[in-house]
């Protein structure tokens, strides 16, 4: 007589199958890129590094503090999403102040310092209780503006706003076919990558 595997046995079996060194490498790369982007676009600063972040998530999963449904998302997608969720939480609670990137080597460091100082002075002088619009709101607004006319890209962005996280959820919400989703997703990534270096300027202009 065969016994039916419990949900815990099922995800552990999938964990054994899917957890490879290559998968961990990919998640580390994805996390490095995410940290770089978020540090560039927001006041948040990473205090852990990709290795510790991934390790913490793995331990939480194994200790039962996180639930993974292998039928909904693969291990790679789940781990990266869980890391991103923790970073989102930290970003939300990061001190709200205008951020000027020091990573952009093409910008003169003295000029950057002047810009940062100007921004702070302008903010002080404005005497507004309410801080400027969050940088991520500016990013999303700019993203929508750049993608204007591209129904597919806007549909994906709208789905993200409705908390869709996986490809299946976005496709379900938008009614897009697999090929239409894939093409729109690639276009969205291109628009976002092009937007990145310009976001600082947008933020500084919006604050000033």
């Amino acid at each position: 007589m065969q016994t039916k595997d419990s949900p815990q046995q099922l995800w552990r079996t999938q964990f054994d199958k899917q957890l490879t060194d290559t998968l961990v490498e990919r998640v580390l790369k994805q996390t490095s890129s995410l940290i770089r982007q978020v540090q560039r676009d927001t006041p948040w600063r990473d205090q852990l590094g990709p290795d510790d972040r991934l390790n913490n998530i793995l331990m939480k999963l194994l200790d039962g503090k996180l639930n993974w449904d292998p039928d909904r998302v693969n291990l790679e997608g789940f781990l990266f999403w869980a890391i991103s969720r923790e970073i989102t939480h930290e970003v939300r609670h990061a001190k709200d102040f205008p951020h000027v990137s020091i990573d952009d080597e093409s910008r003169n460091q003295e000029r950057l310092a002047e810009e940062a100082s100007d921004v702070l002075v302008a903010q002080r002088e404005s005497k507004r209780e309410e801080p400027v619009e969050p940088c991520w709101s500016l990013f999303v607004r700019e993203m929508r503006m750049r993608a204007a006319g591209d129904v597919g890209v806007l549909a994906i962005v709208d789905a993200y706003a409705k908390r869709a996280t996986t490809r299946a959820e976005v496709m379900d919400l938008t009614g897009m076919s697999k090929s239409a989703y894939h093409a729109a997703y690639q276009r969205m990534v291109r628009v976002a990558k092009k937007l990145d270096p310009e976001i600082l300027e947008t933020i500084v202009q919006a604050i000033a």
């Binding site: 890129s33 995410l34 970073i87 939300r92 991520w136 993200y160 976002a192 990558k193």
Partner: peptide
């Protein structure tokens, strides 16, 4: 709205990260 924008921003950043990786 800001919370929704943060979720959207992070989803876009995740997509870029997956492609960059």
């Amino acid at each position: 709205m800001s919370e929704q924008d943060l979720d959207t921003y992070m989803a876009i950043a995740r997509a870029v990260a997956v492609e960059e990786a």
